[in-house]
Every structure is written in structure tokens, then in C-alpha cells.
């Protein structure tokens, strides 16, 4: 036992040594967010002369950070919730009913992950901007629900693929027992299957949050009104025609990734709790 503990400490130290490779570029990002332009381009690597938060304050003001944060949160959270619910349902029926048609659907979902987004974006906007209901304001372009709709469409392929791979970990006997107890399919899924997918739900959530939170291209095509801007869109101020206001852009990015890291830390606790809960049963 003593030896195992010692081994663990060595492993832990090894892990921290590894993080140096990962952190070093992040370190460059953070220290330069405190420097003015001249300092950035004369001494990129050294610690900032003074720890001034001017660029953070400026970035927050220019980006209209709170509005953007609100939009980003709303769009990301709603999209991810829908993606999880819809794709876990889809994955479950696709995995439990192995027929030709379910195979075709599954492999189509998977295959479309290979489409480069750049090659569908113009037809996408062309097609979806035709979705209008006469007499109403309904439009998928320049609305948050429109962007959410598209996010779901692009997220479903990978998420279904992920769920599909993990659903067989849910013991079939549990499902059968529940069916005998008189559960209908809907109850069966929500009461038995879904709760057992916790670790993979969290994983799907993280992977989708990463890509949606930082997404620039799709929102830039869909959202036009300034008050709808997400965080990545609102950083455009710093990316000029010829150059970039690096300190502001870096400060903006640091601000952008903090919520995701907090989310990640919380979600990890949840993964482990989920597994332990399962183990106790």
C-alpha cells in the first residue's frame, strides 16, 4: 500500500511535468495580454512589467462583454441540451434496432462528419433563409433560435456517434426488467437508459461546448444584428484589416475560455460522482 502511494505520487509529478508542454503556449497567451504592443513585440516571453488590467477592462467594454456572454451562454447551453436529448434518443433506437434502415441512417450521420463546413455554408444560408412564415417575423437568419437550430444539425452526427458507442454499456437486462414492470418506451429511455449514460453525456456536452463556444464561422454567417453577437463574434473589433490588437484579443480570449474551464472542472466532478453512484448500486 505504501509503495502504491509512492508510485501514485511519482505519476502525479510526471503528470505535472507533462503539463509544462501544454501550459507554455497558454503562458505566452496570458502574459502578453498584460502588455502594450511595443512590449509584446520586444519581449514576448518575459513577465509583464506591470500587472495592469487595462486591456481586460478595454476588452470588456469594446466587446460589450456581458451582452455577448449572455448570448453565448444562451446559445451554447440551449444547443447542447437539445443535442444531448435528441442524439441520445436517436442513438438508443439506432443501437437497439439493428436493421438496414437504421444502419443507413447511422452511417449517414457518421459520414456527414466528414463534410468540410466551408463547402456547405453558402448553400446552407441560401436554403435556410427561404424558411419564412408569411405574416410573422419567423426567420432562421439573424435569430438566436436559428443559430441554435443549425448548431443542433451540425452537432447531431458526432453526438449520436458517441452515444451509439457507449449505449451498449447499459445492460440490456435492466431494460428488459423495466419493460416487464410496465414501462413504456419513453419512460424506459428516460428512467433507465438516460441516467445510465451520465459519463458519456458529460463528454458529449464538453465536446459540443468546446466547438460551439468558440465557433466563429457559422455565427458570423447567421447573426447580423450587433445585439445578438456571441463572444467570438464580438472580438472582431480587435481583428483589423491589416493587423490585430494583440493585447485586447489575448485578453478577450482569456476571458472567453474561463467559463469553459470552470464548466469543465464542474463536469469532471459529475463524471466521477456518476460512476461512483453506479458502483454503489
Amino acid at each position: 500500500m505504501e509503495k502504491a502511494k509512492k508510485n501514485m505520487t511519482i505519476l502525479e509529478i510526471f503528470g505535472w511535468v507533462l503539463t509544462l508542454f501544454v501550459i507554455f503556449p497558454v503562458y505566452i497567451m496570458i502574459i502578453n495580454s498584460f502588455k502594450d504592443r511595443k512590449e509584446i513585440f520586444t519581449s514576448e516571453l518575459s513577465l509583464p512589467k506591470a500587472l495592469n488590467f487595462t486591456y481586460y477592462v478595454q476588452a470588456i467594454q469594446k466587446m460589450d462583454f456581458l451582452t455577448a456572454l449572455g448570448n453565448s451562454l444562451f446559445i451554447t447551453v440551449t444547443s447542447v441540451v437539445f443535442i444531448i436529448v435528441l442524439s441520445s434518443m436517436a442513438a438508443w433506437v439506432l443501437e437497439r434496432n439493428k436493421t438496414t434502415i437504421s444502419n443507413i441512417i447511422f452511417y449517414t450521420l457518421v459520414a456527414t462528419m466528414l463534410i468540410p463546413f466551408q463547402s456547405v455554408m453558402i448553400p446552407l444560408v441560401q436554403y435556410l433563409s427561404k424558411w419564412q412564415i408569411p405574416g410573422t417575423n419567423f426567420s432562421l437568419i439573424d435569430t438566436r433560435y436559428g443559430l441554435i437550430f443549425m448548431n443542433i444539425g451540425f452537432g447531431i452526427g458526432m453526438s449520436t456517434f458517441l452515444f451509439h458507442g457507449f449505449i451498449k454499456n447499459v445492460p440490456l437486462e435492466m431494460e428488459e426488467a423495466a419493460t416487464i414492470d410496465g414501462c413504456n418506451k419513453f419512460q424506459l429511455f428516460w428512467r433507465i437508459v438516460f441516467p445510465n449514460l451520465k459519463p458519456i453525456i458529460v463528454t458529449v456536452a464538453i465536446l459540443n461546448v468546446i466547438s460551439l463556444w468558440n465557433d466563429y464561422l457559422l455565427p458570423s454567417l447567421v447573426l447580423r444584428s450587433p445585439n445578438l453577437r456571441t463572444i467570438p463574434l464580438s472580438t472582431f473589433f480587435f481583428f483589423g484589416e491589416f493587423t490585430i490588437e494583440w493585447n485586447l484579443a489575448l485578453a478577450g480570449l482569456v476571458l472567453t475560455i474561463i467559463p469553459v474551464i470552470i464548466f469543465y472542472l464542474f463536469s469532471q466532478k459529475y463524471i466521477i460522482k456518476g460512476v461512483m453512484a453506479g458502483a454503489i448500486k
Binding site: 456527414t112 436554403y127 437550430f149 444539425g153
Partner: peptide, 13 residues
């Protein structure tokens, strides 16, 4: 899922 997926991915593609 299919409804959204077809309209967002398949048709534009």
C-alpha cells in the same frame, strides 16, 4: 433529430 439534420446538413450538401 432527422428533421433538423436533413434540413441543416443533408439538403445544403
Amino acid at each position: 433529430s432527422l428533421f433538423i439534420f436533413i434540413n441543416v446538413v443533408i439538403i445544403p450538401f
